[in-house]
């Protein structure tokens, strides 16, 4: 048990774990969060636009994505993206897509569904009296959104969006199924190579736990500060 615990294997692999693994994980998290936010906003606006067909399509997309396990979606895109690339570029064969690009596309498409729902709820949480009051003051639709609805909605949804990003950070570990060396993948590689599963997985758990804890503590503080402003 602890007597045979080999701290050295952790120390030796630190550079690999963090320079390669954690860098991959954090870059993927950041870019996917950004892309998911942009794409998710588009979906949310489609659903709230009032155009029935547009809203229906966006709604179907969201429901579809949210019904599937992330692991299956990862597999889907891993095999599908080369064909889509071929179709777009007109190449004679399915194009080669790197592991990073493939997982980035996956997570953007997947998270967009979740982000859009958070934003839709945030916008709908603003009481109907607010836009009514804004129109009564003579503001037009764009001004009402820009100066009255969105600032309040953003305040409501920011903590939820950040919490979802922490979930995303944890979910990126699932690229493990494609044997990609993200943080967990890197830890697992070392674990298999040196036969040190206990050390490496415990260490990975501690690292994920620490980062998520600190991040969610930050979100909670932000939330209470926003609450006071209101």
């Amino acid at each position: 048990m602890l007597g045979s615990f080999d701290f050295d294997v952790i120390r030796r692999s630190l550079p690999y774990l963090f320079y390669e693994g954690m860098t991959f994980t954090l870059t993927l998290t950041a870019l996917a969060a950004f892309g998911g936010l942009v794409f998710g906003t588009a979906i949310a606006l489609m659903r709230l636009s009032g155009y029935k067909l547009l809203g229906r399509i966006a709604g179907l997309y969201v429901d579809f994505m949210r019904s599937l396990p992330l692991v299956l979606v990862i597999f889907w895109f891993y095999f599908l993206v080369p064909y889509i690339g071929q179709w777009i570029t007109g190449a004679p064969r399915p194009i080669k897509v790197g592991a990073f690009a493939s997982s980035l596309i996956t997570f953007i498409m997947f998270e967009a569904a979740y982000f859009s729902e958070i934003m839709r709820a945030g916008i709908q949480s603003i009481s109907r009296g607010q836009p009514a009051a804004a129109s009564a003051l003579g503001l037009n639709y764009a001004q009402t959104m820009r100066y009255v609805v969105l600032p309040q909605a953003f305040r409501n949804m920011l903590p939820v969006l950040l919490t979802q990003t922490i979930v995303l950070f944890q979910d990126t570990s699932l690229v493990y199924v494609l044997s990609i060396p993200d943080f967990l993948g890197a830890a697992s590689k070392v674990a298999q190579r040196d036969g040190r599963l206990v050390e490496m997985y415990l260490f990975a758990a501690v690292v994920y736990f620490t980062i998520s804890c600190i991040a969610s503590f930050g979100v909670r503080r932000l939330q209470s500060r926003i609450a006071i402003i209101r």
């Binding site: 944890q170 570990s173 967990l184 998520s212």
Partner: peptide, 12 residues
């Protein structure tokens, strides 16, 4: 249970 990826928990 909330601050660790499910995958890591299963490995543990």
């Amino acid at each position: 249970f909330r601050n660790m990826p499910l995958l890591v928990q299963l490995f543990l």
